[in-house]
């Protein structure tokens, strides 16, 4: 009897030890990455990198470019993805929904470099639309990359609304649009917003699709959507790390630092929204 109990206790402790080790394997590298990036970046982040362009040894053009690309991605892929997720969750017949879901998953499996190359061939190159390296090209390539993610989070947000609410609205004779606007959207909204924020964080860290579509520019972005390349933070890191000389390395490190801070802030923001939504759903007790 005693030995069986000891065995059981041993088994339980072993299980917890394995869980702990697995957790450390996940956490330590990510903390290591963040710490080493910030350690390299903090000494070289000076106020003037925010006021000078890369041509002058600063990051202003890259920060502006990253913001423009982010806003563009939210406007295009954000709108399309939310509507697509809503369609799959609420309107599409089951068969069509599963087909759409399949293609969305396929798109999410396409490597980002391939998306970049397709963007280059169809949007940038002369044989395609011939936009040259441009903001719009970058926005569309990044958008294609995160579209499946937004579709998925939106679909999950809507289908996670308790069935009892849907039935309550149906039984009151409310139309589908009324049900979505008044009953389903309020509880789904935090999930949708946090999905958008995380998607934005993912796109902020991307480089490959942009190299092919936005190109890169040392100067601040022009007002033109096409025919004019755009700088972005990850581009500075990518380009300048390959260049000889301490100044280039320093700028690359600074750009990586600013990128990681933006991404962390976005992820924390997304988390806050998710926590708020969890509290709301818990209160509903349905």
């Amino acid at each position: 009897m005693a030995s069986r109990q000891t065995f059981r206790q041993l088994r339980a402790s072993l299980f917890w030890i394995f869980c702990g080790v697995a957790l450390l394997i996940i956490i330590i590298p990510s903390i290591d990455i963040i710490v080493s990036i910030l350690k390299a970046a903090i000494p070289v982040i000076k106020p003037d990198i925010f006021t000078k362009t890369t041509a002058q040894g600063g990051l202003q053009n890259a920060i502006l470019g990253t913001v423009y690309l982010g806003v563009g991605v939210l406007l295009t892929a954000g709108t399309l993805g939310v509507l697509g997720g809503l369609y799959i969750a609420e309107f599409a017949p089951a068969r069509l929904a599963s087909v759409l879901r399949f293609f969305s998953e396929v798109l999410s499996g396409v490597p980002s470099i391939v998306i970049g190359y397709i963007g280059y061939v169809t949007l940038v190159a002369k044989g395609g639309l011939g936009w040259h390296y441009s903001l719009l090209g970058g926005v569309l390539a990044l958008g294609a990359l995160i579209l499946p993610y937004i579709v998925k989070t939106t679909e999950v947000a809507f289908s996670g609304v308790p069935r009892t609410l849907r039935e309550g609205a149906t039984a009151l004779g409310m139309s589908r649009v009324q049900t979505i606007r008044k009953v389903l959207l309020p509880p789904a909204l935090p999930g949708i917003i946090s999905g958008l924020i995380i998607a934005l964080a993912i796109s902020t860290g991307e480089t490959a699709p942009l190299l092919f579509t936005a190109g890169f520019s040392d100067l601040n972005p022009s007002a033109s959507l096409i025919n004019s390349p755009v700088g972005y933070l990850t581009g500075v890191t990518y380009n300048d790390l390959q260049l000889p000389g301490g100044n280039y390395q320093a700028l690359a490190n600074a750009a990586a630092g600013v990128t990681i801070v933006i991404i962390l802030l976005l992820i924390f923001g997304g988390r806050l929204v998710t926590a708020r939504s969890r509290r709301l759903v818990a209160r509903m007790d349905l």
């Binding site: 308790p162 009892t164 609410l165 039935e167 039984a171 004779g173 409310m174 008044k182 309020p186 349905l286």
Partner: peptide
């Protein structure tokens, strides 16, 4: 029309995530 004339109450209360007043008014408004 059918569901306007035939009301339903469920086993578990299912108020909508809106104010108390809006819960009452949501169907008449619709």
């Amino acid at each position: 029309v059918l569901r306007r004339r035939v009301g339903m109450l469920f086993q578990r209360a299912n108020p909508f995530p809106q104010s108390i007043q809006d819960n009452i008014l949501i169907a008449p408004k619709a």
